[in-house]
Amino acid sequence: MSSSNLISHSTTTDNKLVYMANQIGTFFKSQDMDTASARIAEHIVKFWDPRMRRAIVAYLDAGGAGLDPAARQAVESLRPRL
């Protein structure tokens, strides 16, 4: 079984990831609104393991409820970097 088939994140984990992405967003939005989504994405690529990144992108694909606009844009930009 390849590891990419292992996405079976629970709602709890999804909620946590959304919460974390928004939290990261809050910091970078306070630095500079214009660069926020790029820096959120950079932070996620730097610190989240691939399964967490895949899970948040999958979550966005399923609607992405609760993701703050800057965080949503950041997650969107992760797609080519999965």
Binding site: H9, K46, W48, D49
Partner: peptide, 18 residues
Amino acid sequence: KEPGLRIPNMLDAAVDGT
């Protein structure tokens, strides 16, 4: 070359079965 899981993420992943 990808970052791995941090302790809290490991525990989340364990609960999720990965």
